[in-house]
Design a protein around this nucleic acid. Sequence first.
DNA 1: CTTGGCACTCAAAGGTCACGAGTGCCAGAA
DNA 2: TTCTGGCACTCGTGACCTTTGAGTGCCAAG
Lengths: 338, 338
Amino acid sequence: MLSERRLEVLRAIVQDYVGTEEPVGSKALTERHRLGVSPATVRNDMAALEDEGFIAQPHTSAGRIPTDKGYRLFVDKLAGVKPLSSPERRAIQNFLDGAVDLDDVVARTVRLLAQLTRQVAVVQYPSLSRSTVRHVELLSLAPARVMLVLITDTGRVEQRMIDCPAPVGENALADLRARLNSRVVGRRFTDVPQLVQDLPESFDQDERGTVSTVLATLLETLVEETEERLMIGGTANLTRFGHDFPLTIRPVLEALEEQVVLLKLLGEAKDSAMTVRIGHEIAHEGLNSTSVVAVGYGSGDEAVAKLGVVGPTRMDYPGTMGAVRAVARYVGQILAES
Amino acid sequence: MLSERRLEVLRAIVQDYVGTEEPVGSKALTERHRLGVSPATVRNDMAALEDEGFIAQPHTSAGRIPTDKGYRLFVDKLAGVKPLSSPERRAIQNFLDGAVDLDDVVARTVRLLAQLTRQVAVVQYPSLSRSTVRHVELLSLAPARVMLVLITDTGRVEQRMIDCPAPVGENALADLRARLNSRVVGRRFTDVPQLVQDLPESFDQDERGTVSTVLATLLETLVEETEERLMIGGTANLTRFGHDFPLTIRPVLEALEEQVVLLKLLGEAKDSAMTVRIGHEIAHEGLNSTSVVAVGYGSGDEAVAKLGVVGPTRMDYPGTMGAVRAVARYVGQILAES
DNA sequence: CTTGGCACTCAAAGGTCACGAGTGCCAGAA
DNA sequence: TTCTGGCACTCGTGACCTTTGAGTGCCAAG
């Protein structure tokens, strides 16, 4: 096992490298950190750390930089989560308080996270899978055309156009609307299919087709919208990735446009706990030189979606984690209020 | 005025430079284009073109590259719009036909444009300012809480939460809903304020407060949502901007996130005609080395929004214009159908 | 007005060299 | 056993120089 001091050396290396973006050598380390030992000793420790795979040298006559494994150890054992200063907290709250609707909350959250961490921010729209139905509205637009509007408890609204097999009267539609709502309002999405299963049977023969069509569309909407959407911001921060960024920025931009990849990434962590994925721990090739810090957020105690940031593996983990956690907390509050 | 041949030389320079991304010299020109004159003659023409400000040399012993003014002349006088091949047309139609709702149409359009032009695509959500109201729905969520849902003829749905000054009964709400709809359905947004002006007066004293509140929110929504939203895609194509792109990519990414800038840019052109803004013609500083090709699109004869691409000034204008125009046309068709 | 010739310019590419940060290793001290 | 100072070695970086060649402007002749 690694001695206490060697861990201390690793921590120093990570901190210095994150700060300077340059490989750090033994001499510089002893000067900037009061380790109480000479450069030679530090060199021995570094050699040991390199044997274990926690650090590496870009080339022989250069200093060391942390490997993914090194960052992993740093995050797991050596670093805490740095809480934000109270001015920062106040700024967050002020900024989020101005939001007018759900889209706006998400948009502001993205901007906030990007600004705070100076990295790329990713916010998942609140998930519908754990949401409940607030209201279902049916509107007759043309004799055989109905619009379905679904309103969720997170304030999200989805609409679908439905072409019915036969013309629908206003009365029949009102009837369906009333019965539908009485069954599903306040219920979870996942419970809806069962709750409306026998609904067509209680209608006249000639309306059953329409009812079935409407229900099918409703269920389809519920399923479809569980596949989440994302909002991304702060891509300009990609230019801060490093001196060699022309090579790395391209695949990252491509990965960011493949929302599927990001969704999978955010979804990987089971619950709402904070997750840190570092470099090659990320399956997607284009993101191999990035790290992703994500956490769940929600209106109540349950997480309804994830948010996080994508940055270079060489990032300020404690600070980033602190910002992500704080933003998630405040967004949760905002959602609970509305 | 410039002679016919000099214009031909300019065209050749633009075409070559767009293709090779490198300054083009007199010798290379005579080899690649059958101009029927010697390099020396071309040199004279180039000197003249440079005097007029259409081309420039990066440094003394290099070839020439077109200036913004040169591109302008090229676009206005020398280049047509290159129509797409029929496989391309078919691909567009197939790709867009699969869209399920408005968001999806916009999302697919962005991806399509980005892929087709290999540049950054920008699509404005269909504008509400020229839209008409399809339906207004009022839902009672709590005694003094009402949700307003606005449905437009472009299939867009907007919702707002309203806290009423006093509890509202279901009947009163139904009454208001009916009267409101009878007045505004099918009307343009811009006409709505006038149409509902005297509506509160026809209600009982104790309901007037609620009615006014609801109307105020409705009007606010109409105005607010006229400020458009954008969808952007293909940012990975920014890496194709040129060898020196680390310098240029940053401000462009920043400008792209400032949606206001883009909206202003798209909005500048009066009607739905195709607009090309080149380099310094763009007011925003970060976009000074880019060109924007935009065109209006709409469900009927009227344009409801704009779409376009942002690329380097050194872009294939005829091809880009062709793609933009074709996509706009097909999107219009899709919108008209739904 | 066009053309071939010619001297000139200058960025890019390649080569050489000195510098110095950083390393590994070893022998001696604690 | 662990730490330390010393020392030879590595090698990327940057400064400086030269060569190369594409491209130019100008001029006199066709």
